[in-house]
Nucleic acid binder design. Structure first.
Lengths: 241, 241
DNA sequence: CTTACCTGTCTTGTATGCAAGATGCACATG
DNA sequence: CATGTGCATCTTGCATACAAGACAGGTAAG
């Protein structure tokens, strides 16, 4: 799962590696993704890198600035709110529509919560970020709808990017607690309550963001002139660790 | 809106044209999309065509069969059910989360219903298909969440492909009536009722499908052998009309 | 008549080359 | 010192060339 640095010679190795880097918060929003560097890194030609980038672009994970480069998206405050709203709607709807839940499913959820706890205890922040996002995907997996799973996977990636941009401090405890409460309700097969808790949980997380604080102080001016973000960040090649 | 055949020299003209062709049911599931033909048709090189195809592939609208070609997806019965389920969850959630609705919004919806009625009266089936799908997107637009709008747009395209595969006969009247009832509830700002009606509406449409009937009688065998669908359909170049 | 095979043709897969734009720096100029 | 300008370099955009596989039709053997 977390071996994004392992070189799988697969069709979408690049895509997977980048998403997985984002999911574990190793790749920050605004990171420049050079076609050449990725090509040499993955030992393929630029063609394949570009294909991966295009795919990621349609998933709203990277963006191209013409003739300047590919960048991991930096969601605006409005986008951030839209993503959270979308997640609330989808996840709550998912839970509300649940009718049954196997004991095996419950066990899986407990296993996940245990992992979260372990990561917190170990202070493994990368792993924790990944797990926190994964929790919601796990729930979607229980519902067993591949369409929604895929949608939520991408929304989760975007959520993590949003967190990296706007989250002042990471209330891991609070999030974990929220997850626990949702699982509790699910254990009782009270999916309606689980849905409500899920909305509340996402609200809390969103409230924890500082959507006024822009990492880029020129945001407003740039926005009003509709210019592309100008950055000189560390490229992905530095992301070996 | 419906000028998919107009050659816009834009970045994603090909993508737009194909999606729009699907939305109006001019392009059928299983249609082969030849890179060369599209390239000459749009007067670009195969490179750009391939880019568009890759984008459409990540949106689950086309599929590539290695060294054989690109095909418009033919959703399986399971996929079809998953798509409808996803739409129920998202659209109902969307309506339920609505708090306000401007009079302008109501007017827009009425305008849409009028268009549906006009298309039915004129017997313009292509336009009708397009409108029927668009209705749900319009609602999402009222909610104003770009993330969900985009998601629903793709799901709508897939829904139309599903219809073309499994719908025995098109109960336009019934669908239109369903839309009317949803709008009625929204007028009264009874979004909860609108949500319920929306679920019911999608249920009705799904029930109207014959998910056992495969247009391809060898489906099961092929599926169990996990072979790619083998077709000799009219390519997209024939889709002038 | 059926079946196996072989070959020409057409398709996509992938790499590479070149063009065009963006950027940053050195330098000249006010 | 501040500012404008030209160039060198790096980036992506796009087309093209070639390789490799799939398919169809014909042919020969059983």
């Amino acid at each position: 799962m977390q071996d994004a640095h392992v070189q799988i010679t697969s069709q979408d190795a690049i895509e997977t590696a980048i998403v997985s880097g984002i999911l574990s918060a190793r790749i920050k929003p605004g990171t420049r993704l050079s076609e050449n560097q990725l090509a040499t890194l993955f030992e393929v030609s630029r063609t394949r890198v570009r294909e991966a980038m295009m795919r990621l672009e349609t998933r709203c994970i990277v963006q191209v600035s013409p003739r300047r480069g590919w960048f991991v998206v930096e969601p605006s405050a409005e986008e951030a709110m839209a993503v959270y709203e979308a997640r609330r709607i989808i996840e709550a709807g998912l839970l509300r529509s649940m009718r049954t839940l196997t004991d095996k499913g419950i066990t899986a959820l407990h296993g996940h919560l245990a992992e979260e706890k372990a990561a917190m205890a170990a202070g493994d922040r990368q792993r924790l970020t990944c797990l926190m996002g994964d929790f919601h995907i796990r729930i979607a997996e229980l519902a067993g709808n591949p369409v929604l799973i895929e949608i939520l996977r991408d929304l989760t990636a975007r959520t993590i990017l949003i967190s990296m941009l706007y989250q002042s401090d990471f209330h891991a405890m609070q999030s974990h607690f929220g997850h626990c409460r949702i699982v509790e309700a699910m254990e009782k097969r009270d999916f309606s309550k689980a849905a409500r808790l899920s909305i509340q949980h996402l609200d809390e997380v969103e409230t924890g963001l500082d959507l006024t604080k822009r990492s880029d102080p020129l945001a407003e001016l740039r926005n009003s002139l509709s210019l592309a973000p100008k950055k000189r960040p560390a490229t992905v090649s530095g992301g070996h660790n």
